[in-house]
């Protein structure tokens, strides 16, 4: 793996998070290069989601620093981190259920615009123009993710796979540099997973870096440029899919676990 200082988008330094004595993640160092698809894998409870929550500001890390795009973002609030150009999806889908699909995406795309009380009430020319830009962009993401035909449906009425895609579209609409996806293929059927993989590749073509938690190994091996493996909160391996596949510790973590639970 190339470690080019200028090419690193996200770096975590010894990130540790404990919950009442339990180390959910411990001393995790992560380097994510610009423009790559990085997969974060590991058995259930390995601490993947916790790592996401630390990076995106939902949990204050117990220890360690997070450097994003050359800036130290440790301790920033989630909304501030979103502004720096990071967007995420959630393992258990979190949509604005009673809002339409379009409005869900509008929330994402309005992230780059200021909200002013006066603007809202006066609805002046500038506000109108901005509002038009926002909905233009939202439409663009609607098309990009293939959700156009659902624009006016309530989010809660979408099928499971479409809800996942909507969450992704909403995250994209914030115009992130780094997109964090927490098990985007969970619960999808084969066709939907295939569509999702195409979509992720398309996102990569837009020069958006992706950090992806995923249990579907076939998918990970196909689309990831690099893989990081967590087990019991500790990084046990990283490298290209081929390297990781052959790694002893990884095999032990997965197979060993499986034998134990079987």
């Amino acid at each position: 793996m190339m470690l080019n200082k200028n090419n690193i988008l996200l770096e975590t330094k010894n990130i540790t998070k404990t919950f009442g004595g339990i180390h959910a993640i411990e001393d995790v160092n992560l380097h994510i290069n610009k423009g790559e698809i990085n997969a974060l894998i590991g058995p259930n409870g390995a601490g993947k989601t916790t790592l996401f929550n630390c990076i995106t500001g939902f949990y204050p890390p117990t220890k360690g620093r997070i450097i994003f795009n050359g800036e130290d973002i440790t301790g920033l609030k989630p909304h501030q981190i979103a502004e720096t150009g990071m967007a995420r999806t959630f393992q258990n889908i979190r949509l604005f259920a009673e809002m339409t699909v379009m409005e869900n995406i509008l929330i994402g795309s309005q992230c780059r615009y200021r909200m002013t009380l006066l603007g809202a009430i006066l609805n002046d020319k500038r506000t109108k123009n901005e509002e038009r830009e926002i909905s233009r962009k939202a439409l663009q993401y609607l098309r990009f993710t293939g959700l156009s035909k659902f624009a006016n449906h309530l989010a809660r009425n979408l099928s499971y796979g479409d809800q996942r895609r909507l969450e992704l579209a909403r995250a994209l609409a914030t115009e992130p540099k780094l997109l964090l996806l927490d098990e985007p293929a969970a619960g999808m059927n084969l066709n939907e997973t295939k569509g999702l993989m195409e979509l992720i590749k398309k996102i990569k073509d837009e020069e958006i870096t992706i950090l992806l938690i995923e249990h579907d190994m076939r998918m990970v091996m196909k689309i990831a440029d690099t893989i990081t493996v967590l087990d019991h909160g500790i990084k046990i391996a990283e490298g290209t899919p081929k390297e990781v596949q052959k790694n002893e510790k990884v095999i032990e973590a997965y197979i060993g676990r499986r034998r134990r639970t079987a």
Binding site: R94, G108, Q110, R170
Partner: peptide, 21 residues
């Protein structure tokens, strides 16, 4: 307005709203 939309987003899901900036 954007403000109204943001309020409804908070009502629907605070955590997701935060993640959306």
């Amino acid at each position: 307005s954007r403000i109204g939309r943001a309020w409804v987003a908070i009502r629907e899901d605070e955590i997701a709203a935060e993640a959306m900036g």
